[in-house]
Design a protein around this nucleic acid. Structure first.
Lengths: 342, 342
DNA sequence: ATTATAATCGAAAACGTTTTCGGAAAAATC
DNA sequence: GATTTTTCCGAAAACGTTTTCGATTATAAT
């Protein structure tokens, strides 16, 4: 299957390659007549420029790289969606790599993308990662770079984030507004910044409302799973501390809590209210429907690509680029699991 | 930021570009001494081959394209996962495009990938698509091509599928084994082959067990949503036909059914058993836990890439390639929603 | 010493495009 | 008719790599 090239069109028309190229790119120094002829023949021969050659010549691939911890995750697939859509709109394609939360793999992926000479990289760090060399490499090579969600504050790149602390505060405030006074927090793992921030938000909300912080009401997940939620729910019932509200690190775990409460006949929200985080699909289909905090995943993707494109374009013009940070708004979504009948 | 090239290494070492290239690729006609020197300097200068030039020269990009209806979908992200993992293992990267179930968009994506000259394409058709020209184009251009999930039987390419009909039969058989005798089917949209096949499987299972088929027990979804499930559940209760089991096109809809039954105090499975399809995450966290049919999404991804790679390699060697069809096994997963206590 | 063989290297073409720059022809101006 | 201006075209270099094939030198066989 011979691919048609400029050369073929040129020789068929008895003109030079240069002219053919110019005609197709609508250069002003080609007569309308030849333009017409070239375009017609190109169409007929189903000409499509060899992207390899174009890349080599123009030094850009119109392709960006995206590294995320996992694809099979409601939040990330939302982001992926936004990035792909926005990228495509601007003529860019997206290569997706998965770090599986492994630092080792993440390093490989970065090397792969640099090697592939993508025009830019968007990335959410794995839990193990921080301000490591491979990330600094990206900046050193002056590859446009945007971080989102799990970021390293030490890396001076553009970022798209939410304010986890504020979002958590609002969630807990909502519980308080609903009349909860003894509020537990099922928090995430030790390291990730968002787990820390959400915990801090929880603390601050209590403080602001004059509710004493009690560290025995904080339960730390060893893994972000449904079962973990079930387990803590069990524990909470056994301990019988009079907890009347729970703020859970993420919906999946919260659903585990709800499942156990349902089984034990605990009335949610009247006995214990529960609020999750992230607005997973499952939160809308569980009974009772789970109140949660919406993270605008799609919008984060769009914002991330927009920032990246800005940097790509400004670097192309030789300008220096000043990293920007976009903080997107979250929103408490009130559903049945916190809506006490009074 | 100057990228180091072969030329630079060559002139620094006072040897030719050719030799440098060969040294790095471990050609036998380069002495060990020069190899050592070249490799050392390459490492020091952080040399990485310019992939654009390599692509142009070798006519391959080590990149494949993937077109799916949507990323944010449990099944598809599983497949994506499998494809990415297997591709990476073999040194390939994956460009993902989303057709959003739109034929128009799908055509554009195909054109984009052909233009990008990816080494192969993996695709699940949109609902609107069939044996259209843009698909035939892929074959005509002799681009390695694998279809999965929603396929067009008319296109002679490799395929990775499940046997929807058989899977549906097994699901319904399970209901029958559990003692159900009046079994409803909430089916999918009109066109997609899998909706049709699952319906046929339902019919066959009834037939096989001597249960008369009653078309009034078949409910057709206008959209694959939670609400659709709620609605049909309501209708089923109102009609009060004595239905004691329901086979639902997919878990999301099935969960809607369960939600409504829970609300109305219908005992599942004892009054009515429910089985879904696809083994979404939500099926494991709902109460009662939903029985369903597992589709090996990750494995489908792996199989799809494997098939694609086979074709890529055999074409590279100039051999013709005979399309293969891989049919993966499904499995009925029995959970609470069908496990009648007897 | 001569020839044959093996080991090592490099020149050059090729992949297909883009873009600069100069030149020829046509049109406009004097 | 001579000059200037405009219009249109093409030669050629460049992007960085890979690979063929011939050349050169060193080694082995005669």
């Amino acid at each position: 299957m011979r691919e048609t090239t400029l050369k073929e069109i040129a020789s068929a028309l008895g003109i030079s390659i240069t002219t053919v190229s110019k005609a197709l790119k609508n250069y002003p120094d080609v007569s309308d007549k030849t333009k017409k002829a070239v375009i017609a023949l190109a169409q007929e021969l189903d000409y499509t420029p060899n992207s390899f050659a174009v890349n080599l010549r123009t030094k850009e691939s119109k392709t960006i790289g995206l590294i995320i911890p996992e694809v099979v995750h409601h939040f990330f697939s939302g982001v992926v969606n936004g990035i792909i859509a926005e990228a495509e709109k601007n003529g860019y394609l997206v290569i997706i790599l998965q770090s599986n939360e492994s630092l080792e793999l993440e390093k490989k992926q970065v090397a792969l993308l640099i090697n592939k000479r993508v025009d830019g990289i968007i990335m959410s760090l794995s839990n193990e990662s921080n301000d490591d060399v491979h990330i600094k490499d990206i900046l050193k090579k002056e590859i446009p770079f945007v971080q989102f969600d799990k970021i390293s504050k030490l890396i001076p790149s553009s970022k798209v984030i939410i304010n986890d602390q504020k979002a958590a505060m609002e969630a807990v405030q909502h519980l308080i507004d609903m009349g909860c006074r003894k509020i537990a927090h099922i928090r995430g793992l030790e390291n990730p910044q968002n787990a820390i921030d959400r915990f801090l938000g929880y603390k601050k909300a209590l403080e602001k409302n004059g509710i004493p912080f009690d560290s025995s009401l904080v339960y730390s997940c060893k893994a972000i799973t449904f079962d973990q939620g079930v387990e803590f729910a069990k524990q909470i019932l056994e301990e019988d501390k009079g907890i009347d509200g729970i703020f859970v690190i993420t919906d999946l775990v919260a659903v585990g809590v709800l499942a156990h409460f349902n089984e034990k006949g605990i009335e949610v929200p009247n006995q214990i209210a529960v609020i999750g985080f992230s607005n997973w699909l499952v939160s809308q289909v569980i009974t009772p429907k789970l109140s949660t905090v919406n993270q605008p995943s799609y919008d984060m993707g769009v914002a991330a690509f927009t920032l990246l494109l800005e940097e790509i374009l400004s670097r192309k013009e030789g300008k220096s680029f000043k990293p920007k940070i976009i903080e997107l708004e979250t929103e408490v979504i009130v559903r049945e699991s916190t809506l006490k009948k009074s």
